[in-house]
Design a protein around this nucleic acid. Structure first.
Ligand SMILES: [Mn+2]
Ligand SMILES: [Mn+2]
Ligand SMILES: [Mn+2]
Ligand SMILES: [Mn+2]
Lengths: 216, 216
DNA sequence: ATTTATTTTTAGACAAGTCTAAAAATTTTA
DNA sequence: TAAAATTTTTAGACTTGTCTAAAAATAAAT
């Protein structure tokens, strides 16, 4: 099929194209912790395979075939993360690196059976949607808490930053997926916010508020 | 740690050294479907890392460090095979190729939790023992059915040939792990054997009898 | 509209792993 | 025990994926 490196490039391009339709060489290099020259080399290979649309200096987009592969890898990544948390009792900040390896296990039958074994979960431990075998998923409409006004609220349903440190912080503050929150006050000076989370009151910085997503 | 290729070489050397203490270049090449020249190159690298004892033209043995790595990989292979059969309902002839990929997932914590999740199985779906986290396992004393005399018998506990065709044949004949068999007749002409397996009588060739193992 | 800065691509090199063909060592056979 | 057959190693080449340094193209600033 495709090599491990190719799969990682396609996945990175997919994620980057959610913010910018056209993805630049430097963006990919940063995402994959590699150098721009290496990216250019790989882009030529992926273009030869018709997995991306690439014209020199113009950035890239995924073709339908490339996007399909990217979504299969994301499906596998998120299903394995769900498995690690729900079946093996890992914490949500511990699973990403393992899933980075497991997402490359090739068998489609395996991942479909894993999906069934876990009763077709719709979201991974970080709230991200899990594509079905055909790559379909409904993208949830989430807003950062930072965009809410006083007295507005919602259900915590996702994060914008997946780093272990951020996830651990949220865990400690009990700001986990499924919790209902309401904004009770916004501090003028630094735009930090005071939230009501069930019985308790929590004060979060604007930085945190921008990276924590709620469904209204 | 070690590359995927290195892990595959160490595992192959381990398996081969069960029949021959000293493993030859050609044996490894055959096992890994590669060429003798490629094997020589890799043997130098593994010797540099002190994972094997290697002297030109003399064949190789694993060092303690090399054997430890090989046993970790075998542990992972067999635990994943058990998972695929017991949790995802694959058949015993379907799991080997998937496990060949999964055995390279690196996390030790993951495999220890998987082990616990499945309640510490002692044998994989083919009857092979699963090493514990320290690489320890008790090697079962099994005999090929071909070595039995009339009226002798035992419990089917392993196979010498792991090919899908052989496993499928056994499945169809109900000659699966755990079944009690007794030899009722041995045909002089071709050394084929007639077995009593629970209520039924089954006639197997010498070829089959040599590859099917029983605990007495 | 040039100059300057940034981004991207090319050129050339390197490591890992593999291959074929040929040479060297070992084993077998006569 | 010397010739023949087999096994193993070396030599040289190729692919994939990466890198640094330098050139080319694009974007930003004067
Ligand atoms: Mn992840
Ligand atoms: Mn995730
Ligand atoms: Mn196997
Ligand atoms: Mn097995």
């Amino acid at each position: 099929m495709n090599t491990l490196a190719e799969e990682n490039y396609l996945k990175a391009i997919y994620h980057l194209s959610l913010s910018d339709a056209n993805v630049s060489t430097n963006q990919i290099a940063a995402a994959l912790n590699t150098k721009a020259a290496s990216v250019t080399d790989m882009l030529k290979k992926l273009a030869d395979k018709e997995l991306i649309n690439y014209e020199k200096y113009q950035g890239v987009t995924l073709t339908a075939a490339g996007e399909k592969i990217a979504l299969q890898i994301i499906r596998k990544h998120r299903l394995w993360e769900y498995f690690l948390v729900e079946k093996l009792n890992f914490k949500w900040d511990e699973v990403h690196e393992m899933a980075e390896e497991m997402e490359h296990i090739s068998s489609v039958e395996l991942i479909d059976r894993l999906d069934k074994f876990m009763d077709y979960p719709k979201h991974d431990p970080h709230g991200d949607p899990i594509p079905d075998r055909d790559g379909n998923f409904k993208k949830h409409e989430l807003k950062p808490i930072a965009s809410l006004a006083v007295n507005e609220g919602g259900i915590i349903s996702g994060v914008r930053d997946h780093s272990a440190t951020f996830l651990q912080y949220l865990e400690k503050q009990q700001l986990t997926i499924g919790k209902k929150i309401t904004v009770t006050e916004i501090i003028d000076y630094d735009h930090s916010m005071i939230l009501q989370v069930e019985q308790t009151t929590i004060h979060i910085s604007r930085e945190v508020a921008k990276n924590l997503l709620v469904a209204i």
